[in-house]
């Protein structure tokens, strides 16, 4: 465990050092993210011009949800996208050999070695929007609510990681999975709104099949509507189960890996 944490810290440091060379990129990136966030708030405004609530959520509650969405989206772009696209390349070209030869856990290495450090701005700005929405609502959450928010937020990160990891592990068997990440990002846009917006089968699918409901709606609920102990427990268990599943799938995939050449 201590070694894992040290490795993670080293990866982060290496990526930071790499990107300090392109400092100007940071400002460019901050501007882009800020603008995108402003436009997302503007979009929420358009929907709320004709309604006081959307799916039972008020304007500031939806803003809070947008903040959570932005933070998780930032996590995907900072950690998952750069690493997962490299993993697909590694498998296609056979360079995964070099990773497997290293005396570190291979799943840890392929998942976290390359991070786009500046994208951390997305996460910070997203959480900033959460705080802004809380201040506007005027009701400061209890410490229990804050704790459950962080538990659910971490569970959401685990879930997102697990889904991506499993999708990309598929590339051991199928060659072209890059498109799956595009498809994931398109469907992930559904997480911009509380899951109560969707009706019938769609809502069930978004709650359990492609669990965006657990990823953004539930953490946001912790600070707005409140969540039950049961929901906390289910989300936690599900997150752990998903991560364990990636582990199994990774082991299985490595067993069938035969490198590219030879």
């Amino acid at each position: 465990m201590r070694q894992t944490l040290r490795l993670l810290r080293e990866f982060l440091r290496a990526c930071f050092v790499e990107e300090v060379e392109y400092r100007l990129n940071f400002i460019g990136h901050l501007l882009t993210t800020g603008l995108q966030l402003a436009l997302a708030v503007f979009m929420a405004n358009i929907f709320f011009f004709r309604a006081d609530s959307v799916g039972g959520w008020s304007f500031y509650e939806v803003l809070l949800l947008l903040g959570v969405f932005n933070a998780i989206h930032g996590f995907i772009e900072m950690v998952l996208q750069p690493n997962m696209s490299r993993l697909v390349q590694h498998i296609r070209k056979g360079t995964l050999d070099y990773v497997l030869l290293k005396p570190v856990d291979s799943q840890l290495f392929v998942s976290f070695r390359h991070m786009v450090f500046w994208k951390i701005a997305d996460i910070v700005l997203g959480l900033g929007l959460v705080v802004f929405a809380l201040v506007q609502m005027g009701a400061w959450p209890t410490w229990q609510a804050i704790v459950s928010f962080f538990v659910l937020f971490s569970a959401a990160l685990c879930l997102v990681y697990a889904i991506w990891m499993m999708l990309m592990t598929l590339s051991f068997w199928a060659v072209k999975v890059d498109n799956l990440s595009y498809l994931f990002m398109s469907f992930f846009d559904t997480a911009r709104f509380p899951v109560s917006v969707y009706k019938g089968f769609l809502r069930l699918a978004l709650m359990y099949l492609f669990p965006v409901g657990l990823i953004t709606t539930l953490p946001a609920s912790a600070l707005t509507k409140g969540v039950s102990v049961w929901q906390l427990l289910v989300a936690g268990v599900l997150a752990l189960a998903f991560v364990a599943l990636t582990r199994l799938l990774w082991r299985l995939a490595l067993r069938s890996y035969t490198s590219a050449s030879s």
């Binding site: 929907f47 959307v54 072209k176 498109n179 595009y182 398109s186 559904t190 109560s196 917006v197 009706k199």
Partner: peptide
Amino acid sequence: RSESLIWMVGAFVQPLISLAVWLTI
């Protein structure tokens, strides 16, 4: 063609989200 289809389906999601929100409103 499979990529083209994936691109097409992926692009369907955004308008359908807006539709869902307006139907709720």
